[in-house]
Structure formats: C-alpha cells, structure tokens
C-alpha cells in the first residue's frame, strides 16, 4: 500500500487519479502510524512553501517523514519541502536533501519566463527512479522556485539557469516536475517508483 500524505495542499486528487490509472493501491492519510507502516510514501503538493511547511508541522509530520526508511517520493512542493530551506516565505524545510530552493529570475530577452510552466527536457538522468527514460525526455513543470544543483541531483533541467529536476538520497526521492501530469513518460516514472525503488 502506498500512503499519499494529506497535508491540505490541493492537487492530491491528480496523484490519486494517476495511481488509479496504473491500478496501484493507495491511501490518502495524515495519520503518522499509517504513514510509517506504508510500503511507500508519496508527498505531493502544489502551493506556497512556508505555509505547506506549517501544515506539516501542525500535523506533527516533520519528524515522521524524516524518520521514514521505506521509499519516499516528493513531487514539486513535496520535494522542495524535503530540501534544507526555501526562499519562498523564507522557511526552514525538512533538510533531507542538502540543497536550497531558490526563485527563478525572468529574462525577457532570453525568453526565460517565471513561472517556469510547460514541458522541458531533463538530462543527466540516473536510475532507478528514471529507468527507461532517454536523455532529453520532456516532463511537465509548473513552478517559480527550484532546488539548486547539488550532488544529489539525479536529473537536471534548465530555465535560464540549470537546476535539480530530480533528487535522490538513500530511500528519499523527489521530482520538481509532475509525473502525474507528464503523459505516458510520467506514468513510467510513477511505475518505476512503485516497482523499482
């Protein structure tokens, strides 16, 4: 059973629908014991970093998530919360990944827009989460803040600057892009998380 952490951030149903299409069993929960006992844990989310962190704190889930030993995957804001800190609302985060989340700068001349919205290529891909993907595969992004490049990056992308598009440290994984909205390639990544991580 996969536990999808419910911390009131919206778009949970996108992840539920995507797992449903794959025929994967899941439970949406904010209960610490259910999360600890799950085979795998997904931390999805869209929203603002400091208020999302506050919601994790209110539900007493920060230490629970940091202490998990099964595979855990954060998506978008979920991954950003697993980093050291975020510029968005200047918040301390969980500190699982050793990097900071910073805002993009728009550059009209170079065509760099903020938010970074749409399909962009990922490169420097590492397995197992991204097995079967080719270099330059397009994934769907929608965000204004992104994790800085670091040694834990397992995929990179570029919006004006290069950033970590996916991260991995031990049993913890994260993607800045939305696999649940990235067509069949995104489904492949979710399947990899379920079957290979």
């Amino acid at each position: 059973m996969i536990a999808i952490v419910d911390y009131d951030t919206g778009n949970l149903c996108s992840v539920c629908n995507a797992l449903g299409r794959l025929g994967v069993q899941y439970v949406v929960t904010d209960d610490a014991e259910t999360i600890k006992k799950a085979d795998k844990v997904l931390l999805p989310g869209v929203g603002e970093a400091s208020s999302a962190m506050e919601k994790l704190r209110e539900r007493g889930l920060c230490e629970v998530i940091k202490g998990l030993t099964q595979p855990v995957m954060g998506i978008c804001i979920g991954m950003q919360l697993m980093c050291r800190c975020s510029e968005e609302g200047n918040t301390e985060c969980l500190g699982i990944f050793d990097t900071e989340v910073k805002r993009f700068s728009a550059d009209k001349k170079a065509g760099v827009k903020v938010p970074h919205m749409g399909w962009n290529e990922i490169r420097n891909i590492e397995t197992p989460l991204l097995s079967g993907l080719r270099e330059g595969e397009f994934l769907y992004f929608v965000h204004s803040f992104a994790p800085q490049m670091c040694g834990e990056a397992i995929a990179t992308s570029v919006n004006g600057v290069q950033f970590a598009a996916a991260l991995n440290k031990g049993n913890f994984y994260g993607t800045q892009f939305h696999p649940e909205k990235s067509g069949t390639i995104g489904e492949q990544i979710l399947r990899n998380f379920v079957e290979k991580c």
Partner: peptide
Amino acid sequence: IAQNINIP
C-alpha cells in the same frame, strides 16, 4: 477528465 487524462 481528471480521472482519464494524463496531461494538464
């Protein structure tokens, strides 16, 4: 639509 379509 949300249940059936895998793009935004």
